[in-house]
Nucleic acid binder design. Structure first.
Length: 436
DNA sequence: AAATGCGGGCCGT
DNA sequence: ACGGCCCGCATTT
């Protein structure tokens, strides 16, 4: 798309060993990373990280978000775009107030099937909330192996709640299977652990017998507090002016949605634009223009999301995500991880890859080259990073997963939890998923 | 059955 | 030229 918006991608979180700024498209990436970043499962915002090539999760190009491979005709850089999240079209609430937020199947075919299913909570239809956090287009993640490091760069700020993480989805699936194939009263004692944590040495690992926990406090991926604190979890100025706000990067999965005060997407813009200064503010007026023009291709980027919605493609027949009934989208999108706010990048999407022959993982491919701007922002210091130990417990019911996330930093925990909440749905109804 | 990657192709800008 | 995305194919999980 127009490079305009990309040009804006401003901020970027600079990781640990990042001494200088870089862009995934740079011909040469920094080789001097002294320290790798701990794997980030829930990246959000315009961030960049450098993982160790040994990191299993990085090798798998894992993400908590449902990301699907996107062909960018550049074999050196693996690009993936966010599929959004599957929710109940009625927005029914579960017993504990949480809402269905399934992980969209990555496989197109499977996704279509998935959308034909009914909400396990109310029997209503399911709908896919596409991601349009990158100037109206899905958030994209880029992976590139270079030397002993795996470079990761994300563009866009997810404008929807988190779906189940991959590990949660898998855990649920297997548990369901198990349940089906096991005696009714067979004692079940599932030990679910985050796949992410599993491999990662750094993450604390906490295993909890799922059946021992039935009502964990609302937790994210699946649970969004009814009311999130409107308290800004970050300070724009601070973020911008003080890249060193290390404190911001304490969590591995920084994600703070701005308070759900705004009913309009604008509220979100207001809060975020200044910071990201990119996707929203300039070049891409798409988002800002929108709120009301639901019928027109408000979201602009070529009505990208619109296409998604109606295309007979993977998105099937959903066509009312942002219809009248949904005056606004998730207002609270974390403008990015706190970390993301640390630095502002002005990357361009201008790519410059080298033609590459064939071969291994991201090798080359005949692609063009161009100028590469890179982050213009000065980069900061490696901020501290923290690990977020997560205890994820699945509840084998139709799709609700409860997870707890323990974070070393209280503050983080708080912000984490203050995650996005589906503004569209009211909190409340009680519905026992289990009864379904 | 799904998830993942790859890469050809088409389309719009 | 680029970026987004659809689609089929092959390989893994």
């Amino acid at each position: 798309m127009s490079g305009a918006e990309d040009r804006q991608e401003a901020d970027c979180v600079c990781s640990f060993g990042m001494k200088s700024t870089w862009d995934i498209n740079d011909p040469k990436l920094p080789q001097d990373a002294k320290q790798f970043d701990p794997f980030q499962e829930w990246t959000d915002g315009y961030v960049r990280f450098i993982y160790s090539a040994e990191d299993k999760n990085a090798q798998r190009h894992l993400s908590g978000w449902a990301m699907r491979n996107t062909n960018n005709h550049n074999c050196q850089i693996l690009k993936k775009s966010c599929l959004g999240v599957v929710v109940c079209s009625r927005g029914c609430a579960l017993a504990d107030g949480s809402r269905l937020q399934l992980r969209p199947a990555i496989c197109d075919k499977a996704r279509q099937k998935q959308q034909k299913k009914v909400c396990p909570g109310c029997g209503g239809t399911l709908e896919l909330l596409p991601c349009r956090g990158h100037s109206g287009y899905p958030v994209t993640n880029f992976w590139r192996v270079d030397g002993k490091a795996i470079f990761f760069q994300a563009k866009g700020v997810h404008d929807h709640p988190r779906p189940e993480s991959k590990s949660e989805t898998e855990a649920r699936r297997s548990s369901v299977k198990r349940r089906v194939s096991s005696p009714p009263f067979a004692p079940k004692r599932r030990l679910v652990e985050s796949q992410v944590d599993r491999d990662e040495d750094r993450a604390l690992r906490v295993v909890v017998p799922a059946d021992r926990i039935s009502f964990l406090e609302p937790s994210f991926p699946q649970h969004y507090p009814a009311f999130q604190s409107t308290e800004p979890y970050y300070n724009h100025h601070n973020a911008l002016g003080e890249p060193s706000a290390a404190g911001l990067q304490k969590t591995a999965s920084p994600r703070l949605y701005v308070g759900r005060t705004g009913y309009e997407f604008q509220g979100y813009l207001t809060a975020v634009a200044p910071v990201l200064g990119g996707p929203t503010s300039s070049a891409s007026a798409p988002l800002s223009s929108s709120s009301s023009s639901s019928s027109s291709s408000s979201l602009d980027p070529k009505a990208g999301w619109k296409d998604l919605l109606k295309s007979s493609g993977p998105y099937g027949d959903n066509h009312h995500y942002y219809g009248p009934d949904y005056p606004c989208r998730y207002p609270g999108n974390p403008p990015a991880s706190p970390a993301a706010l640390q630095t502002i990048i002005t990357t361009t999407t201008k790519v410059s890859y080298q033609p590459c022959p064939k071969g291994a993982a991201y090798q080359s491919c005949p692609k063009a080259q161009s100028g590469l701007p890179g982050c213009s922002a000065p980069l900061d210091e490696p901020s501290s990073s923290s690990y977020s130990a997560e205890v994820k417990v699945t509840e084998e019911s139709g799709g609700v997963i409860k997870s707890l996330s323990f974070q070393p930093e209280v503050v983080q925990t708080k912000t984490e939890r203050a995650d996005a909440y589906d503004y569209r749905y009211s909190y409340g109804n009680a519905f026992r998923y289990d009864d379904y």
